[in-house]
Computed example of a mutant assay.
Amino acid sequence: MDHSEEPTLARPAAEVSEALTQMLTSTPAAVVVLQRGRISYANAAADEMLELPGSLVGRDVLDLVHPSEVPGLRRRLALHDRCRLKLPPTSFETDLVRADGRVIRIESLAHTIDSDGARVIGLICCDVTARAAQEEQWLRAATHDPLTGLPNRVLLIDRLETSMARLGRQCAQVLVMLLDLDGFKSVNDTHGHAVGDQLLQQVARRLRGALRAGDTVARLAGDEFVICAELGVASPTPAVLQGRVQAALGAPFQLDGITVTLTAGVGAITLDEPRDVHGVIDEVDRKMYRQKQSADRRARGQVPPGFRPRRLLMPPGVGDPEGRRTSHGS
């Protein structure tokens, strides 16, 4: 087979270098070279990404990232600089701050390069802000109740497991409460589901407002809510937190001109040692159910709260063969 007329692929080094330079200049991906944390090269796409005045060359890369990202990026760069071995390419994400103050999410592929005896870090970067925002929406949809914005059962289980792992180390006790709203179905049946939805939203806001920022308030299902609170030496007692919850639900709810007074069945448990979270939820559910049954019996007059029979004085000769005045119910 005659290859005499095929073009040769070999090109002078200068032509290859020029082609690579044109490619780096025109590529839509941001390309940056770092040396000891400072930018020694940045293509046009990198300059356009941050829209800062002037070139990025000469700037400290840590001045460009969001303050929350500085410690992590500093450690990453130090690892690349100090490692004697050439590290394999690694991918990571970080937040950068543009000239207008807007924060953008950047994914970077980093690789170490030995150039003229100096260790430099090459970065190929792309803006993934839109993708990160979409992923955040998906994550929130999977872990939060769309009506109230509270954590759902999935996130509740995760929070409970985290608290169980911290119990005995970062916290002394964990309070778990389950609340079941009384009469919620009648609100839906009488005033409609729109009013019922408003009631659930107001309950969620009140519960969040009654508790601390680190406490978890979750919507378990329907009209059931679960509270998880880690307690330390300086924390409020379980009784105090339960009192705050009861007070939050005690005031009437105003719903489109309709006043609704609400009560709730409550089951609570204070844990001193880790337990299976599903077993904990089952236990507070049983406690809540027993509490509601007891309340129902009291409401029907079967077991009045604080019941003490009145002392009745009988006339002489009634009920006593010796004619003494007899006191009953003592």
Rank of each mutant, 00 (worst) to 15 (best):
D285N: 10
A248E: 00
L220H: 15
Y289H: 06
T143N: 09
D276I: 02
A239V: 08
N188P: 13
L255C: 02
H278Y: 09
H144Y: 02
P309C: 02
E18I: 06
A78H: 12
I106Q: 00
D256K: 06
I258K: 01
D81P: 01
R206Q: 01
T237N: 02
R131D: 07
V128D: 08
D114V: 14
L56H: 04
E135Q: 15
R275S: 11
G209E: 10
Q170D: 11
T112E: 15
L9T: 14
A204N: 04
E18Q: 10
T190E: 12
L255Y: 00
F253S: 01
I157F: 09
M288H: 00
I121Y: 00
E18V: 12
D47Q: 04
K287I: 13
G257I: 04
G196K: 05
T94W: 13
S115E: 11
R82L: 14
I39P: 03
S40T: 15
I121K: 00
G323M: 00
L181C: 04
R208Y: 07
Q198K: 15
L77W: 00
P7S: 05
S186A: 14
E69T: 13
A239R: 08
G301A: 11
C126A: 15
Q173Y: 12
M314G: 04
A239D: 08
E51L: 12
E135W: 04
A133T: 04
L241E: 09
V226S: 08
Q291P: 07
L255V: 01
D47G: 03
S4W: 03
K185R: 13
R290H: 10
A251V: 12
P315F: 00
Q246H: 08
L255F: 00
L255D: 02
L262E: 06
A213R: 06
P316N: 08
V217G: 13
V154K: 11
R84P: 11
A295Y: 04
H111I: 10
T148Q: 10
A234N: 13
L139C: 09
R219K: 03
A229D: 02
P238C: 08
S91R: 06
P305R: 11
F92S: 02
Q173L: 10
D282P: 04
I157R: 14
P309D: 03
R300I: 05
V195Q: 03
V174M: 10
A132R: 07
I104S: 02
A268W: 02
R11A: 06
H111L: 10
L160P: 11
D223I: 06
R36D: 15
V31R: 08
A247S: 09
G37W: 07
I269M: 08
E136V: 01
E135G: 03
E107P: 04
S26A: 07
V284E: 01
V57L: 10
V154W: 09
P316G: 11
G72H: 07
L56T: 07
R166A: 12
R11P: 05
Q173N: 10
V33I: 13
R166L: 09
K287F: 12
P67S: 05
D95I: 03
L85R: 13
A29N: 10
V303K: 11
